[in-house]
Computed example of a mutant assay.
Amino acid sequence: MSDGQERAWAELSPRYLLEVQRDAAATSILPGTAIDPAAVFGRAAPLIVEIGSGQGHAIVQAAASAPDTDFLAVEVFRAGLARTMLDADRAGVRNLRLVEANAPEVLEHLLPAASVDELWIFFPDPWHKAKHNKRRLIAPVFPPLAARALRPGGVLRLATDWADYARQMREVMTDADGFAPAFPASEGAWAPRFEGRVMTAFERKGLAKGREIRDLAYRRAGS
């Protein structure tokens, strides 16, 4: 991390970073150690979770724009979390918390069942080499984890600039139990661009390289 990120980590972690119990790995979550969101944020409010929040550009702006909603950023790269905390502090954001952890374990262990109103996964690592495709997050093992964390009626939002990963996401979610598209069939095969997703440098880079951005949205069954 840069000197500024090191200072941000030291000074701002007590305010923003969740202290969690680990299993064997440094970014793991010990089973049976779920958080209580109301206790974490000091109130009962809708909860939005972003997996793979990167440097936090999207979630910091979202949190600043929706003070009545709580946000949790999930990321494994400490430098990105430090930058997120720094930007959140500069913006005066207080309805945001961060966790340095593996996404599947957050969904399975850290978050209580049916506690999340929206789950965002924007531009996850595409692992674009064919031999690495098995490492992609959105695979058949993923929907049950998302379904567990999302409340009935909650929404899963996805976006990617890799065409084959977009198709894989759609296939996985089409076959998943307990989810239905959260956009009308008249819109076509893809959801309209999510207005709540700010345009980041990462997205601009993909567009500049000629890659089309594809959004998907699915609603958790129930009411």
Rank of each mutant, 00 (worst) to 15 (best):
D89Y: 06
G92R: 07
I138C: 08
A113M: 10
W120I: 09
M85T: 07
D117G: 14
D125V: 02
V40Q: 13
D89C: 06
P31E: 15
D89W: 10
F71W: 14
G32N: 04
A34E: 13
V49W: 03
K129F: 04
E50L: 08
A44R: 12
L81Q: 05
L47R: 03
D70S: 15
A64Y: 00
G56M: 00
I121S: 07
N95E: 03
I29E: 01
A66N: 14
L107C: 09
R83Q: 15
R78V: 00
E105G: 09
I138K: 02
I59A: 01
A114W: 01
L119M: 09
L110H: 12
P124K: 07
D89S: 14
R90Y: 00
D68F: 05
W120Q: 06
A62D: 14
Q61N: 14
P37F: 06
A79P: 08
A79M: 01
V40C: 03
L137S: 02
E50I: 03
D70M: 09
P112I: 09
I48T: 10
H109Q: 10
A34H: 11
L98D: 06
A91R: 15
F41R: 06
D36C: 09
A114R: 13
L137V: 06
K129Y: 00
L72F: 02
A38Y: 04
P46N: 04
S115I: 08
S28F: 04
F122T: 05
F77V: 11
R78Y: 00
L17S: 05
E118C: 05
L119S: 08
A91P: 02
L107M: 05
S28L: 14
S53W: 01
L72Q: 07
A73K: 06
A82E: 02
T33I: 08
S53E: 01
Q61A: 15
E118M: 04
R22Y: 04
V99W: 07
G32V: 11
K129N: 09
K131C: 05
E19Y: 01
Q61D: 13
A91F: 08
P31I: 15
L96I: 08
A24Q: 13
P112D: 12
V93I: 05
A64F: 12
A64T: 01
L110C: 03
L30G: 03
S65W: 07
